[in-house]
Simulated assay, not measured.
Amino acid sequence: MTVGDQAREECGALYAEHHRWLLGWLRQRLGCLHDAADLAQDTFIRVLTARDAVSVEPIHEPRAFLRTVAGRLLSNHLRRRSLELAWQQTLANLPEPEVPSPEVQAVLLQTLHEIDALLDGLPARARRVFLLAQLEGLTYAQIAEQFGVSVRTIKRDMAEAFEQCILLTP
């Protein structure tokens, strides 16, 4: 039996034994059966894909393991939904002639998701420093004063943010 076959068999057993529980756990947090079902399915796909790629030890605490994987997916889902709601509110507040076409809206929303994912990889202060500099136009000195740190520290945070931008840009 290959590693992939073994992983699929283990994932099938994991699914059979814990899918109902995971679905309930997600539904309780989301309040929506359809979103919970999608995330439960994504969780098992993520587990199967990860376990199919490498030979790994058996899962000793399956519910804790599934809760961790699903929790990360849930966090991403909620952040994505929050971003989409903010985008919809922004569009609703635009005067009619300034509302972009549906095609442009889709491209802009996708770009927002990519920026969000990029920023999510940064430590909190570096993310905030980057946003203050890029969106609010504050100088490094102003940001340093706001955080009570040196300008050199702000420069390091910005360098980290720019590095993240370069590394994650296709």
Rank of each mutant, 00 (worst) to 15 (best):
L74W: 02
L74M: 04
L74I: 01
S75K: 10
S75Y: 07
S75W: 01
S75T: 11
N76M: 03
H77G: 02
H77M: 01
H77R: 03
H77S: 02
H77K: 02
H77Q: 01
L78V: 05
L78I: 02
L78S: 05
R79K: 08
R79W: 05
R79M: 08
R79H: 09
R80S: 10
R80Y: 01
R80C: 09
R80M: 07
R80V: 01
R81E: 12
R81T: 07
R81H: 03
S82K: 06
S82V: 02
S82D: 13
S82F: 02
S82C: 05
S82L: 10
L83N: 03
L83H: 01
E84H: 06
E84P: 00
E84I: 04
E84R: 10
E84T: 06
E84D: 11
L85V: 10
L85N: 12
W87L: 10
W87Y: 15
W87I: 11
W87C: 10
W87P: 06
W87D: 15
W87Q: 13
W87R: 11
W87N: 11
Q88W: 02
Q88L: 07
Q88D: 13
Q88E: 15
Q89S: 11
Q89Y: 01
Q89A: 14
Q89K: 14
T90D: 15
T90F: 07
T90K: 10
T90L: 10
T90P: 00
T90S: 13
L91W: 03
L91I: 08
A92E: 15
A92H: 12
A92P: 08
N93Q: 15
N93G: 14
L94D: 07
L94K: 10
L94T: 07
P95G: 11
P95H: 14
E96H: 06
E96L: 12
E96Q: 13
E96P: 06
E96N: 07
E96V: 11
P97M: 05
P97F: 02
P97D: 04
E98T: 04
E98K: 06
E98H: 10
E98C: 11
E98Q: 12
E98W: 04
V99D: 07
V99S: 06
V99I: 14
P100F: 08
P100A: 10
P100E: 13
S101E: 12
S101K: 06
S101H: 11
S101T: 12
P102A: 08
P102S: 07
E103P: 00
E103D: 13
E103R: 09
E103V: 11
E103S: 14
V104C: 12
V104E: 15
V104D: 14
V104N: 08
Q105C: 05
A106P: 00
A106D: 09
V107P: 00
V107H: 10
V107D: 15
L108W: 01
L109C: 03
L109N: 03
L109S: 01
L109V: 03
Q110F: 03
Q110H: 07
Q110V: 02
Q110W: 02
T111F: 00
T111V: 04
T111C: 07
T111G: 11
L112W: 02
L112C: 11
L112I: 00
L112Y: 03
L112V: 00
